[in-house]
Amino acid sequence: MTKVTMTVNGKSASGDVEGRTLLVEFLRENLGLTGTHVGCDTSQCGACVVHVDGEAVKACTMFAVEAQGAEVATIEGQAAPDGTLNTIQQAFQDHHGLQCGFCTPGMVMSAAALLKDNPKPTEAEIRHYLDGNICRCTGYHNIVKAIMAASGQDVSRIAAE
């Protein structure tokens, strides 16, 4: 067992882990942050996307010890302390960008990473950016729309209620 310490959503967190302990396991099992999900074992679905030192990574494809000393951000830290949703979360609700909610944490974290680098992405840029985030419920229409809306773009001409 190795002791790891990192900052998760602004708070110091530490625990004893094995070499093989994945970051996602540390978050879910050691810290009880079960918002980060595991949907595959080949690093493709993106349900586990978190930010490590500001960059989106798949928490299922990184060992916990590799995050030693890092700043980790998860879905649990996205809303304001009083529960107010952030712009992206609110856009997902406003535009029905989620159904079962399982891929949603990864989608929100990926969207946040995209908008940090590209504040006004085009539809095509959003779709390509989401290549590593699979959603089985929404057909992506409302996810793409929500991300466009979160970036301040007018989405009123995109079909749907």
């Binding site: 649990e76 989620l98 909610g101 949603t104």
Partner: peptide
């Protein structure tokens, strides 16, 4: 239901 799914509290 979106509130809990969007905040990781499902």
């Amino acid at each position: 239901e979106d509130i809990r799914f969007l905040t990781g509290s499902g």
